[in-house]
Amino acid sequence: MPQLRYIEDPITLELNASLCNGCGLCLDVCPRACFAMEAKRARIVDRGTCLECGACALNCRPGAITVEAGVGCAAAIIKGWITGSEPSCDCG
């Protein structure tokens, strides 16, 4: 079965390796295996598969990771466009 991957170009995940403290928590929390450790620093090995869930950035204490986290959900984004607010699924 072909591996499921989504649109990759606009992914906003960035890592500033100079701020990384090597804790490795980003590897623990990433559900898409975007990161790897290399010489005691995290490195992005697969940016294109990122879901922009924001888990890595939130758990990165030194703030080395940035990502425009949000909901990957069309209904939520349409709602955000209409109401002019942050996209949020109101399925809940």
Partner: peptide, 15 residues
């Protein structure tokens, strides 16, 4: 897209 485990908000907006 909202139900899947593979989509990012940037990608969904683009499509």
């Amino acid at each position: 897209t909202g139900s899947s485990t593979i989509t990012s908000p940037s990608g969904v907006q683009q499509e």
